[in-house]
Design a protein around this nucleic acid. Sequence first.
DNA 1: ATGGTGGCTGGGCCA
Length: 258
Amino acid sequence: MLIATWNVNSLKARLERVTQWVSENKPDVLCMQETKMKDAVFPTMTFAEMGYESAHFGQGQWNGVAIISRVGLENVVANFAPTIEPDLEARIISATCGGVKVVSVYVPNGRALDNDHYQYKLEWMNKLKQHATIFAKPTEDLVIGGDFNIAPTDDDVWDIKKFEGATHVSAPERKAFLDLCDWGLTDVFRDLHPEPKVFSWWDYRNGSFHKGEGMRIDFLLATKSLAKRVKSCEIDRNARKGEKPSDHVPVMITVSEK
DNA sequence: ATGGTGGCTGGGCCA
């Protein structure tokens, strides 16, 4: 089973690249973020013709998350679980795909440490942990895939000195990330790849990709029962090349059957 | 280099 996550930065602008990537990689499940479209215009038929069911939680010009699956797509939950105060933005959708509980998340950016949006980000991470506890047990097969807008360690940014006073690397954000993992989730990529400076995002500006100035902020976080069956985890750096790339690239895991 | 690029849009915000 191949499970992937990708912040596509507008599915409308990226549809050709996304369908091309799906055709080549044939993920069983793909979590997407920043579709930036309303549900009514989500390309359900395009994916259906490729053999995928779709679940989309969109709002329009910003945010928007989706899960597409060719191994079943059941029990879809748009937004946080019903007992949690709902987010006003479309940033989380959950479903069960082929026996695995899957959550696609687009964690708020935070903007700046003194910005209200930063508090919103921290609260959002707390709600995500609550959502996990409601949506699944730590003993079940669960993967949370998405753009977390948090670099968990200094190895996950190109130069920590450039991030003094910035979001994505602050101690409270990193603690929120660890708190979520402490519930029972593993950063599968880091487990299999100890090497530093492997990134999933590069700013469009200033030739960042070619200078190697990126961050690893996109993750597949798996519960133990799932993580122990993961055979490989890759970040598809090639997806940042060529015409009209997203600023993020896909992260993918292959999981062996039980 | 207080800029740069890209995607919403249709001027300015967001990342």
